[in-house]
Nucleic acid binder design. Structure first.
Length: 579
DNA sequence: TAGGCTGGCGCG
DNA sequence: AAAGCGCGCCAGCCTA
């Protein structure tokens, strides 16, 4: 076995937009480094590319990388072939698993902390690519040192972390799953998501017209042109011209003007200036987000997000450039002036998108961990888990088809994570006096659910961490022990969705020969694209996928809903898989 | 002029 | 004593 660290240097971070590797470096267990350039004169270029090819053709070569997804992708482009079948190690995953709460998992930072490897090389290199340049323009002698250091750092981290991973069965399993997830995620990133430029342009134009008119409206009211993004202008508008009171202040003692505060303000002092501001904020934000999507789409209108498999300290994933996990939807219930940004995303020609989401994943996990009998029962019978709570908080007036259900849902989460009476009352829209006895009754009816947060907080105070269903340890600051429940639920949910993705990727590759592929995970949801010409088999295939996704042995069943988007992301429809 | 911080907000 | 949490991105502001 040739376990060497491996690091690539590229012309930029956007590999699916044309950035390429121009050099690589390796380091043996004994600290012997080798640095090779893939650019320059044709002799050197061809010889070193040949060397790289030989390295990867060697079946004994097991590369160790820090953020393997990136180096593997760069290498796949350099070699022109897939590397999805080969074993590898990833020190960033090791670090995430072992020290989730660490402030930084960056290679240089960790190597500095572990072995005082100096970090001065990066600064020097960066100076050379200040105005739009990239690392390939840095003097080669300097890059040589930089690359040697990075290869050494990676090997150092591996030698330090890997024995710890191997020492515990749960960590071995989690690590193997995370390595597999890197392959799953590489496939998604390579595929990308299709933007509908036409819909996007149209939406932007519509929003721009609205923003213009609301700015005019503000000017007419205030008597001067204001920029609501500027705090000084904003305060003039609300507190001078409109004469509204300051209901709350931020931690820096400035007047607080966030959505919740504005909603309160609107309740007590309805004023057109509030509406103007809320409209402006929603629409102008919508424009900027939509423009950023346009800028990130390539010549074929495809957007390639960066999906970090360990983006969050809870083990959740994250998406950036762009963040496709927070694309606005037109949920009028919460936002009076929504931006239907999901209209701007569409399935690729010849495909439909399926959205598979765990229905009430978070609540089910809360019920699983609390063991609350009434709620376990409701879930096993397939009833709405928020029904019992709704009937307590709204008594006879509870309407599960209206906005009350959403409030109860929020409330169920908030209470489970340690919220008090005041929070509960505001969420429900009830006065303290009305909410108090119902809150009391809730606590008496669901003692185990209410008792979960303090229970978990106690273990955090004792151990300093919570342990998810899969044995992943999530360190929680002892000073914030109340956050333990949230980490436990979020981390377990992430573990479920991650494993589901691996299962689904395996199955889809086998069943459709890679014609159907996962595009994106959204915490409790998997988006996949499916070729229209295979739609005849879709029900069968999706039945199997749902089975794979639901196959976790909890105290309550998991349930996956299937929706299909044929025109755009906004217009999803229930897809009946029968069975 | 770059980089860090804050407030605000979208999603889960 | 009381407290839901996790992300990424933007505009504006302040500092080095």
């Amino acid at each position: 076995m040739l376990v060497n660290s491996y690091d690539t240097e590229t012309t930029g971070l956007r590999l699916h937009y044309g950035d390429r590797a121009f050099a690589y470096s390796i380091c043996t267990r004994d600290g012997v480094t080798d640095v090779r350039r893939l650019d320059g004169g044709p002799v050197r270029r061809v010889r070193n590319l040949q060397r790289l090819r030989q390295l990867w053709d060697n079946r004994d070569f097991v590369p160790v990388m820090h953020n393997a997804k990136f180096d593997l992708t760069a290498t796949e482009y350099a070699l022109g072939r897939s590397l999805s079948a080969r074993p590898f190690h990833d020190t960033i995953l090791q670090a995430h698993i072992l020290i989730n709460h660490h402030p930084s998992h960056r290679l240089k930072q960790l190597a500095w902390e572990l072995a005082n490897v100096p970090v001065d090389d990066e600064k020097k290199v960066r100076q050379f690519c200040k105005d739009g340049g990239n690392y390939s323009m840095v003097p080669e002698e300097l890059m040589q040192l930089y690359q040697e250091r990075d290869a050494e750092r990676t090997m150092l981290l591996h030698l330090f972390f890997m024995p710890k991973i191997l020492a515990r069965r749960e960590w071995r399993e989690i690590y193997a799953m995370e390595i597999d997830l890197v392959r799953t995620t590489m496939q998604m990133e390579r595929r990308g998501m299709m933007l509908c430029r036409k819909a996007c342009t149209k939406l932007i134009a519509r929003l721009e017209a609205r923003v213009d008119s609301v700015l005019d409206e503000i000017e007419a009211f205030a008597g001067e042109r204001l920029n609501p993004d500027k705090p000084t202008h904003l305060f003039r508008l609300l507190f001078d011209y409109a004469g509204l009171p300051i209901l709350a202040r931020t931690k820096t003692k400035l007047p607080c003007t966030n959505k919740a505060t504005l909603a309160q303000l609107r309740e007590a002092h309805p004023h057109p200036a509030i509406e103007m501001l809320v409209k402006y904020r929603s629409w102008s934000r919508g424009i900027t987000m939509l423009r950023s999507y346009m800028n990130l789409a390539d010549g074929n209108d495809i957007i390639y997000p960066n999906i970090r498999t360990c983006g969050a300290i809870t083990g959740r994933e994250s998406s950036s450039n762009p963040n496709l996990q927070n694309v606005a939807k037109s949920e009028v219930l919460l936002n009076p002036y929504p931006v239907p940004a999901r209209l701007a995303f569409r399935p690729r020609p010849g495909y439909v998108n399926f959205h598979l989401d765990y229905s009430g994943q978070e609540m089910r996990l809360l019920v699983h961990y609390s063991g609350e009998p009434v709620l376990i029962d409701a879930l096993r019978k397939g009833e709405d888990v928020h029904g019992p709570g709704g009937r307590i908080f709204y008594v006879d007036s509870y309407d599960p088809t209206g906005p009350q259900r959403g409030a109860v849902k929020n409330c169920n989460f908030a209470i489970s994570y340690g919220a008090g009476l005041t929070k509960v009352a505001t969420v429900l829209g009830l006065s303290l006096a009305v909410a108090a006895p119902r809150y009391k009754l809730y606590k008496a009816t669901f003692p185990r659910l209410v008792g979960l947060a303090p229970l978990v907080a106690n273990t955090v105070r004792q151990l300093g961490y919570v342990e998810t269903y899969f044995g992943r340890r999530l360190h929680v600051p002892r000073s914030k022990a109340y956050m333990g429940t949230n980490y436990l639920i979020q981390g377990t949910g992430a573990g479920i969705t991650k494993r589901a993705q691996n299962r689904v990727r395996r199955y889809l590759n086998k069943a459709t020969g890679g014609e159907a592929q996962i595009l994106l995970p959204i915490h409790d949801e998997i988006v996949l694209e499916y070729p229209r010409k295979r739609l005849a088999d879709a029900r069968h295939v999706l039945r199997h996928i749902v089975e794979l996704m639901e196959a976790f042995d909890l105290r309550v069943p998991l349930a996956v809903d299937v929706n299909v988007a044929t025109a755009d992301w906004e217009h999803k429809q229930v897809f009946d898989i029968g069975g």
